[in-house]
Design a binder for these strands. Structure first.
Length: 744
DNA sequence: TAGTTGGGTTTTTTT
DNA sequence: AACCCAACTA
């Protein structure tokens, strides 16, 4: 036995060496579970002689999968690339692309994201004349998602209605939704799992083949699996029963996505012969950080008791600061990081600032720009969900899968080619009558009455798509996307538009092209379908690289699985964290326990220093909130902190902004410095060209381009045009009102 | 058909 | 604050 195993503690060793039968590895935060998993894989191959081909490791994010793969590769000499290390969703895509035809899907099926789902559901609700004022789209979407996560088919849903009117409507919508997706040869995220389970249930030959292949299965972040994912795993493991699940019930934070915490809590009931191993030594955090985390999570009722400990001494106290408002909070975090970096105490890449919501990152981001601190915001709008990117992907999807009505309809008039709502409705009606796809109806546009001269435009469109399809045989992926952009004039139209963010849109398109090029370089045999699948399943966190010299700003959810020597958690106020939604929900006890687990995840990300902050006053969705300090702060024993929590309670706003009546001729402007004051123009008229508060020669900061020098300010027709020479991005000309430049 | 504007709405987290 | 949609205008 080599020294690979010598540095493991006894429990970790047990986890590595217990290779046969069901194993439940309860791995506390920072207890080295990834190390156990990867070493276990190496042990299976090197000591037990298991063929790498027979090993499967499943995670939730591509990033986690990639890291695991890399670490296994470092440990084992050969064969690492034949281990199946992927995410749940990409595993299912691979299986379904191969055998989806058994379920009536074509291998070119496309994957619908949340945006596409919304489009489908909207259409259906309109068709069924369901008023979206009373029952929102997301009500139906989440009902459908929940059903799929519980493996309930539309038919099964129908049977379980039991006279409930709302449920009968959901059943109707669910059925129609599912039919639409199938007609479009498309699956949503939940389908990927559910349909794979369906496939296994109904086609034992396929199941047996995969059971035979995956003789050793490992599942990471097991506490976040849902019922469908559990079924998937159980099917695969049913034959050899070598299933090792790793997780921590205290870190279960994805209930909203269908995660079923019972999967981990009841594992021993499902597999009575399971070996349970607890990893309780923490290698990451100081005792103070750990004590704080344990104190907070100790308030949860439904959990497995565990005792995390560390050999890393007491360490610094938890830093705690409260501020009058969120601006001061952001200032403090920015200055603190800046100073410590300047004094050589920390590196920027050692720091992360965590928030409950994505929007909270904005404020800190703005300060970072002014201070010149390099940073990366993880999350928010996914790159591939941006309008211009989705448009171009819709072209690719249409070329790949002509049955995807959502994709076709998205681009039929983008860029503008004179096909309006009326024409589209005529095509829809024609397609519905004949029960054919939108695209196929378009190909018969000359037979659709009432189209008039739009018919020619539509024919031109289908001819163009056909041309792309035939040209695809001749050139590569990157040529195709460049051709699409060129032929459709997509960028040309953007350039001509006076849209405020045309420039950044074009930059995004350039980035998309680069992504296609590098995808092509990395996968020589890559098909269009491969690219679309990959793109559909990437998360923002997947792109995060360690040691990039940047401070990371992200949500607590995104931070799961990561660690940083210095962690800041901002916005610790009741109503922000824990969120208002959890406090006001129908089952606040359970929801607040979930928020508390999120707090536990956040705290345990920290290695050496943890800074917790809150603000008495904060702007949320355009209105000022006054919240009490978070209950989680109060759960941390005061001796662990360097500052006491002075009590501040939820205050009543004396002048509610909404009910405020402005005195005559003196319009009231809520929040911030009024443009009227700055521009010196009166009478509440829309102020287009309020003069900027900077002059030529000033140093200014821009949200995207960073720091630059103002080279010129010219008064245009509508607004001031400002020329700025940016340090990194070079010279740019922009409208003052849009650019939102801040004098530094 | 295209562009603009005003009014209403917003669950926070994501594969 | 930001986004989406319907209604209105050109």
């Amino acid at each position: 036995m080599n020294k690979l195993y010598d540095t493991l503690n006894d429990q970790q060793k047990k986890g590595v060496f217990t290779t046969e039968g069901p194993v439940l590895l309860l791995a506390g935060a920072g207890s080295g579970k990834t190390r156990v998993l990867t070493t276990r894989v190496a042990y299976l191959i090197e000591e037990k002689g298991v063929n790498p081909w027979n090993i499967m490791a499943i995670t939730f994010t591509n990033k986690a999968a990639g890291e695991m793969k890399e670490r296994v590769e470092d440990m084992v000499g050969f064969g690492a690339d034949s281990i199946w290390v992927t995410t749940f969703h990409s595993t299912c895509v691979r299986i379904l692309k191969r055998y989806g035809d058994r379920l009536g899907y074509d291998s070119t099926f496309t994957i619908y994201d949340t945006d596409d789902q919304k489009t489908v559901i909207k259409e259906i609700l309109k068709k069924f004349q369901i008023d979206t004022k009373t029952l929102k789209e997301r009500y139906f979407l989440s009902a459908i998602s929940n059903a799929k996560n519980e493996l309930i088919s539309p038919q099964a849903y129908h049977k379980a209605i039991g006279g409930d009117f709302n449920k009968s409507r959901i059943a109707k919508v669910y059925e129609e939704y599912q039919n639409t997706l199938k007609r479009n040869n498309a699956m949503d995220f939940d389908d990927l799992i559910m349909q794979t389970v369906e496939l296994f249930k109904n086609h034992s030959d396929i199941l047996e083949q995969y059971q035979e292949r995956f003789r050793y299965i490992m599942v990471d972040e097991y506490q976040d699996t849902n019922t469908a994912q559990f079924a998937l795993i159980s099917h695969l493991a049913a034959k050899y029963r070598n299933i090792c699940v790793v997780g921590d019930d205290d870190q279960s934070i994805y209930k909203f996505r269908g995660a079923n915490i019972r999967n981990i809590l009841d594992f021993e009931k499902v597999y009575p012969d399971a070996v349970v191993i607890k990893l309780e030594q923490n290698y990451r955090s100081t005792q103070n950080v750990l004590d704080a985390a344990n104190a907070v999570i100790g308030n949860n009722q439904s959990r497995k008791e565990k005792a995390l400990w560390t050999e890393k001494g007491e360490g610094n106290k938890i830093h705690f600061r409260q501020f009058d408002n969120a601006f001061e909070e952001a200032d403090y975090i920015t200055d603190d990081i800046y100073k410590k970096q300047k004094d050589g105490l920390i590196r920027y890449s050692d720091c992360a600032v965590l928030f409950r919501t994505n929007a909270q990152a904005r404020l800190v981001e703005e300060r970072f720009i002014i201070r010149g601190i390099p940073y990366d915001v993880v999350g928010g709008t996914n790159f591939y969900a941006r309008r211009e990117i989705k448009d171009l992907l819709a072209y690719l999807k249409t070329i790949e899968n002509g049955r995807d009505d959502i994709a076709v309809r998205r681009i039929i008039n983008v860029p503008k080619r004179g096909v309006g709502m009326t024409s589209i409705q005529r095509i829809v009606d024609y397609a519905d009558e004949r029960n054919i796809n939108f695209y196929d109806a378009m190909r018969e546009s000359d037979q659709i009455i009432g189209l008039g001269k739009a018919a020619m435009k539509i024919t031109a469109f289908t001819t163009m798509i056909q041309a792309f399809r035939s040209k695809m045989e001749l050139y590569g992926l990157s040529d195709l996307i460049k051709d699409v952009i060129e032929t459709t004039g997509y960028i040309t139209e953007l350039e001509a538009s006076n849209e405020e963010d045309a420039q950044s849109r074009i930059e995004n398109i350039d980035e998309l092209i680069s992504k296609v090029v590098s995808f092509e370089e990395n996968n020589h045999e890559a098909t269009l379908s491969d690219f679309l699948d990959e793109v559909a399943l990437v998360a923002d966190i997947d792109h995060v690289v360690g040691e990039s010299g940047q401070v990371l700003l992200m949500t607590l959810h995104s931070a799961k699985g990561l660690e940083f020597p210095h962690v800041y958690i901002a916005g610790l106020e009741d109503g922000v964290f824990p969120s208002y939604m959890s406090i006001a929900s129908e089952d606040p006890e359970a929801e607040i326990e979930e928020e508390r687990r999120l707090a536990y995840v956040g705290i345990t990300r920290a290695g050496d220093d943890l800074t917790l902050t809150c603000a008495k006053q904060r702007m949320v969705r355009g209105e000022t909130q006054y919240n009490a300090a978070s209950r989680f702060l109060k759960e941390i024993p005061p001796p662990l902190m360097d500052n006491r929590l002075s009590t501040f309670r939820k205050m009543k706003v004396t002048v509610p902004v909404k009910n405020y009546t402005a005195p005559e001729n003196k319009p009231y402007v809520a929040g911030g410095v009024s443009a009227l004051k700055r521009g010196g123009i009166g009478q509440g008229l829309p102020v287009m060209g309020a003069s900027p508060d900077y002059i030529v020669g000033d140093k200014v900061a821009h949200i995207k381009y960073g720091i630059g020098i103002v080279r010129g300010i010219e008064q245009g027709a509508k607004d001031y045009q400002v020329t700025v020479d940016f340090d990194t991005a070079g010279p740019k000309i922009m409208y003052a009102a849009f650019a939102k430049l801040k004098k530094v």
